[in-house]
């Protein structure tokens, strides 16, 4: 009953959601291995340092730098012969690949697991998280992604052995062209302790700089509503919500965001929620611990000028 963790790397670092997957998988099996698909064998070191992993299985090939999902899913499915569980942290990386692995194994994967009740019973969100369902699977091999906000992020301190698997690369019918990556000095959205999030109320990309200024003051990450992203105030990878990122920081400060169901889906588990909005009836306010009913430009100017 061994479990395999699919490792997602950010550069050479193991992603936070992968660390959540390890914590979750320890509820399923005492024996965890990690699988790394990479073009760079030196990435083994950060993975073998993960606590809780027995063996790091590596497939190293130039073709895996920006791996095609067709290739990655075939390679993973082949490794799964030896395992009962495949667990990854929820992200666009895993959501791209794991369902295709599921199809190759004739398994129904389980998305966004938030709680593990037993080895085959899990809790997961439906309807943008407005409903939590307890689901039981009858599949012999269980494939799942887990929410990074629902499990502790396991640390380092392990010294797993590294085993290189030689695999022939399946043929690919697609190719990588480019990656337009958002680079930021600020804390990463999904792991930040504080988030300042801006909505349509900001009105323009130029005005959105006021959000960035406040974020820097609070050492916070930046978030946004879909309306703010659609309007081009900021890029897609900052969107919080049902179809964006799911966050649960200590502090979520929502500025000019009305609080649609789809936005709440991504942040309702935040510890403290602050709302800055001039509409006393904005649904967001009901969710808030603190509400400042005010024109957001007045509030942001005052906050940015305030000497902490």
């Amino acid at each position: 009953m061994s479990a395999l963790i699919l490792i997602e790397l950010n550069g050479s670092d193991v992603s936070a959601n992968t660390r959540a997957a390890i914590t979750a998988a320890l509820n399923l099996s005492d024996s965890l291995d990690a699988l790394v698909l990479t073009n760079d064998a030196s990435n083994a070191s950060s993975v073998s340092a993960l606590a809780g992993i027995n063996t790091v299985k590596m497939i190293v090939d130039d073709a895996l730098e920006h791996a095609n999902v067709e290739v990655a899913s075939r390679l993973i499915a082949d490794v799964m012969n030896d395992y009962s569980f495949l667990v990854a942290g929820s992200s666009t990386f895993s959501k791209n690949i794991l369902p295709r692995v599921g199809a190759l194994l004739d398994v129904q994967p389980i998305s966004d697991v938030c709680e593990i009740k037993s080895k085959n019973t899990f809790v997961r969100p439906l309807y943008a998280g407005n409903v939590m369902a307890t689901v039981e699977t009858s599949d012999e091999t269980i494939v799942m992604t887990v929410r990074a906000t629902a499990f502790e992020h396991s640390g380092d301190g392990g010294s797993a052995s590294v085993e290189t698997i030689s695999a022939s690369m399946p043929s690919a019918n697609s190719e990588f062209i480019s990656l337009q990556e958002s680079v930021s000095e600020r804390p990463e959205l999904t792991t930040a302790e504080r988030i300042v999030s801006g909505g349509r109320g900001l009105g323009s990309k130029e005005n959105f700089a006021l959000i960035e200024q406040l974020a820097d003051k609070l050492d916070a990450a930046i978030g946004a509503s879909r309306a703010a992203v659609d309007a081009g105030f900021i890029s897609n990878d900052y969107q919080v919500g049902q179809t964006g990122k799911v966050v649960a920081p200590k502090l979520y400060l929502a500025v000019g965001i009305s609080g649609a169901i789809q936005h709440l889906a991504g942040m309702k588990d935040s510890q403290v929620i602050v709302v800055i909005n001039n509409d006393p009836d904005a649904p967001m306010s009901r969710m808030a611990d603190l509400v400042w009913q005010v024109d957001l430009f007045d509030a942001l100017n005052e906050l940015n000028a305030y000497q902490v």
């Binding site: 019973t121 939590m132 369902a133 689901v135 709302v275 603190l290 509400v291 509030a299 000028a305 305030y306």
Partner: peptide
């Protein structure tokens, strides 16, 4: 079915006891 839903629960947005603030100083 491969997956059976055993139970469901509304988990929607729980209202919080919102407190009003009216200045940066109060908020901080």
């Amino acid at each position: 079915p491969r997956i059976k839903i055993l139970s469901v629960e509304e988990s929607g947005t729980k209202d919080r006891a919102s407190k009003q603030v009216s200045s940066a100083e109060e908020l901080f």
